[in-house]
Deep mutational scan, measured.
Amino acid sequence: GHYRIRINGREFEIRGISEEEIRHLEEALRNGADEKILKEIVDRLRG
């Protein structure tokens, strides 16, 4: 998958993330885990 997200007015492209991972992120966001989720995304993109 290849997705664009906007955070604090800046747009980011996220590549190589699966539909299942996105559902997991959405679930966590609904549970209020904003900073933790951003850290997970950044860590994943770093490799």
Rank of each mutant, 00 (worst) to 15 (best):
residue 34 D to C: 06
residue 38 L to M: 08
residue 43 D to R: 09
residue 10 R to F: 14
residue 26 E to A: 06
residue 33 A to K: 06
residue 41 I to V: 07
residue 42 V to I: 15
residue 35 E to S: 09
residue 47 G to M: 07
residue 26 E to T: 07
residue 4 R to P: 06
residue 9 G to E: 03
residue 39 K to H: 08
residue 11 E to R: 01
residue 44 R to H: 10
residue 9 G to Y: 01
residue 21 E to P: 01
residue 45 L to D: 03
residue 25 L to C: 01
residue 32 G to R: 03
residue 7 I to Q: 00
residue 26 E to N: 07
residue 34 D to V: 13
residue 32 G to T: 04
residue 23 R to L: 13
residue 2 H to M: 10
residue 28 A to R: 06
residue 36 K to W: 06
residue 32 G to P: 03
residue 14 I to F: 15
residue 19 E to F: 11
residue 46 R to C: 06
residue 7 I to N: 00
residue 5 I to A: 01
residue 4 R to H: 14
residue 4 R to Y: 14
residue 32 G to Y: 05
residue 38 L to P: 01
residue 45 L to H: 04
residue 41 I to L: 12
residue 21 E to F: 04
residue 31 N to E: 12
residue 18 S to D: 05
residue 41 I to W: 07
residue 42 V to N: 02
residue 5 I to T: 01
residue 22 I to V: 08
residue 43 D to L: 05
residue 17 I to W: 05
residue 44 R to P: 02
residue 29 L to C: 04
residue 25 L to V: 05
residue 13 E to W: 10
residue 47 G to I: 06
residue 26 E to L: 09
residue 26 E to W: 06
residue 6 R to K: 14
residue 17 I to F: 03
residue 16 G to V: 10
residue 43 D to I: 09
residue 39 K to Y: 14
residue 14 I to C: 07
residue 36 K to N: 13
residue 15 R to H: 15
residue 36 K to P: 03
residue 25 L to Q: 00
residue 13 E to T: 11
residue 38 L to F: 08
residue 31 N to D: 12
residue 10 R to Q: 13
residue 9 G to C: 06
residue 28 A to L: 15
residue 42 V to A: 03
residue 40 E to D: 09
residue 33 A to C: 10
residue 13 E to K: 03
residue 27 E to T: 12
residue 36 K to E: 12
residue 7 I to C: 05
residue 30 R to W: 10
residue 32 G to D: 04
residue 21 E to T: 04
residue 33 A to P: 08
residue 4 R to C: 15
residue 16 G to Q: 06
residue 36 K to G: 10
residue 36 K to Y: 12
residue 13 E to P: 01
residue 13 E to H: 10
residue 30 R to N: 10
residue 24 H to Q: 14
residue 12 F to S: 00
residue 43 D to P: 01
residue 42 V to D: 02
residue 24 H to P: 05
residue 27 E to G: 07
residue 37 I to Q: 14
residue 16 G to H: 12
residue 40 E to F: 08
residue 31 N to T: 13
residue 1 G to T: 09
residue 35 E to F: 10
residue 19 E to L: 14
residue 46 R to M: 15
residue 7 I to W: 07
residue 20 E to R: 05
residue 16 G to K: 04
residue 2 H to D: 12
residue 20 E to K: 08
residue 5 I to M: 01
residue 22 I to T: 04
residue 17 I to Q: 02
residue 2 H to E: 11
residue 12 F to Y: 15
residue 23 R to K: 14
residue 12 F to Q: 01
residue 18 S to I: 03
residue 17 I to Y: 03
residue 44 R to I: 09
residue 24 H to I: 14
residue 8 N to H: 05
residue 43 D to T: 06
residue 9 G to Q: 02
residue 24 H to R: 11
residue 27 E to H: 12
residue 37 I to A: 12
